[in-house]
Amino acid sequence: MDYAIQQGLNALAFGSEYALIALGLALVYSIMNLMNFAHGEIIACAGYSMYLAILIGIGSPWLVAPIAIAAGALVAVLFERIAFRPVRHAPTTTGLLTALGVSIVVQNLLTLLISPRPRAVPVFSELSRTIFIGPYAISLLQLLELAVVALAIGGLVLFLKHSTLGLAIRAATREFSTVRLMGIRANRVIATAFALSGLLAGIAAIFIIARRGSIDPTFGFQPVIKAFIACVIGGFGSLGGAVLGGMLLGFLDVAIIVLLPQEYGGLRDAIAYSIIAGLLVWRPEGLLTRRIELGDKEI
């Protein structure tokens, strides 16, 4: 039983990380129809900002964490301004390829300017401590991750529900032209969506760094692929769906690790992706998208 609870917590922690990244992707996608492959590089840049902060002598986690979050938001807005604004009206594949191009450029810039090899970022080593709640040994990191993700999602929901810009973003996910007719600037709505997604990416970067302790140029790639899949499972563009998809994926990952015998370890991906493909064949439009919302884009 203890073991099950332990693994359940593990799954929650993984799932909340995926959810955080998937939310950022879904925010941008729901407005611009852009599959932002460069989201992983936003995470990587946030991670490298921590590395640089430590390099110039800022050692306190309380300072490094906000720097990472700010860097994430800044980089996301920069990407939007430089690369994604010119292709805003182009077909989806164009946006996809632009995002891919940005991701390749940034990865190689980091390789050229810093190093192709992993660099240690030891600032959050405190967090890997284990604490005991009753009989359960829980890593402080997981607990914190759950709390912060819950807070971040709560904050996002508050922002989207109770601010004018949030309202505009929510409206833009349905019908952008009408939002513009109401006198809201398109650029501001899109920039805000990017900033928010960068913010979430920054938070995700902190937790990934805390878990791995080091960073390399392809740092953001794996989590973003997973987050993409989370988005699609949940229903692309649906924010609730992104969270649900992320959590599902977290549980799937942990379940496969726990249940699969050691000698079939190499089939982990095969099983995970088979289940994902099965889910999508069963519900092609994702778990949380109602068909009616797709309108003309149906099928």
Binding site: A90, T98, G101, V102, V105, V106
Partner: peptide
């Protein structure tokens, strides 16, 4: 390559 892709798409 990344730069060519971004510029090409722009």
């Amino acid at each position: 390559m990344g730069a060519i892709i971004v510029l090409g798409m722009t």
